[in-house]
């Protein structure tokens, strides 16, 4: 069976500095995969390469067995890969509802239509309405997205990412900056809306990571230093030394002890 996503010897340089230094990664269909690593490790850059926002310097990226590393972002998206942004990226002057509807349009087959009045597209509007429900944003339906609270904007960001029904979802720190309750709620939301999909998530919150992930990849200075099931990664000496430090060791030790 072909992997949902494979990266082969991927590198990326910005000028003279190599930010991604030869990444090999296979993510199976339906897997929940977490990518962790210190600040500046290149996690977001990796997402930018996979989603087509940047072009790779060398290597190969395959989505369901097909090369996508030379494609522009919109074409990668149309092939069923969708991503969210670490720094919220929404259509801030449009209403929450419009944001979701925009995220649905292409996958619903409307393309660049200038002959379908949106108000009459029953199925499309119902779908956007259901997404609002899922995201718990129904009360905010007509609010301008730019005026939402931070947590609501993050929820919308995730909502727009999953709206089009992509089979591979990349989430870049969806819970960053959220309070504990908000994080719990967001994770419960993410779990719910990504059922049956391949999920790749960058996350700093270790509790979230170990709760959710089937496999974890640790990225440090643009290289993978460990990749495998949570227990394996947790036990890895290299990981503890190179990155996770006292914090994690203590946590891991206490969890092992428990």
């Amino acid at each position: 069976m072909t992997a949902a996503l494979s990266l082969r010897k991927v590198t990326k340089s910005f000028g003279p500095t190599e930010i991604i230094r030869g990444v090999d990664l296979e993510i199976a269909t339906g897997e929940r995969h977490a990518i962790i690593g210190p600040n500046g490790a290149g996690k977001t850059t990796l997402f930018n390469l996979i989603s087509g926002r940047f072009h790779i310097s060398s290597g190969e990226i395959l989505l369901n067995g097909e090369r996508i590393d030379a494609l522009p972002p919109h074409q990668i998206n149309r092939r069923g890969l969708s991503r969210s942004f670490q720094i919220t990226s929404i259509f801030h002057n449009l209403s929450v509802f419009e944001n979701l509807r925009c995220a649905l349009l292409w996958s619903a087959g409307y393309r660049y239509s200038f002959w379908n009045p949106l108000g009459r597209q029953r199925e499309l509007n119902d779908h956007a309405g259901r997404l609002l429900e899922d995201l718990n944003l129904t009360a905010r339906r007509d609010t301008r997205a730019g005026l939402l609270s931070y947590a609501d904007q993050r929820a919308l960001e995730v909502g727009m990412t999953i709206a089009g029904g992509a089979s591979v979802i990349l989430l870049d720190e969806p819970t960053a900056g959220m309070s504990n309750t908000e994080t719990d709620y967001a994770m419960e939301l993410i779990r719910r809306v990504t059922v049956g999909k391949t999920l790749v998530m960058v996350e700093h919150d270790m509790k979230v990571v170990f709760d959710l992930a089937d496999r974890i990849t640790v990225l440090v200075y643009g290289q993978i230093i460990a990749s495998g099931p949570p227990a394996e990664v947790r036990a890895s000496r290299a990981v503890q030394e190179a990155y996770l430090g006292a914090d994690f060791s203590a946590q891991a030790a206490s969890e092992v002890a428990a």
């Binding site: 522009p72 969708s82 991503r83 990226s89 259509f91 449009l94 419009e98 660049y112 949106l118």
Partner: peptide
Amino acid sequence: RMANACRDNFERAQFVGYD
């Protein structure tokens, strides 16, 4: 509507499938 969306954030528009 996508013209509005691209006005607000052309980059995001790419990641919902539009050029």
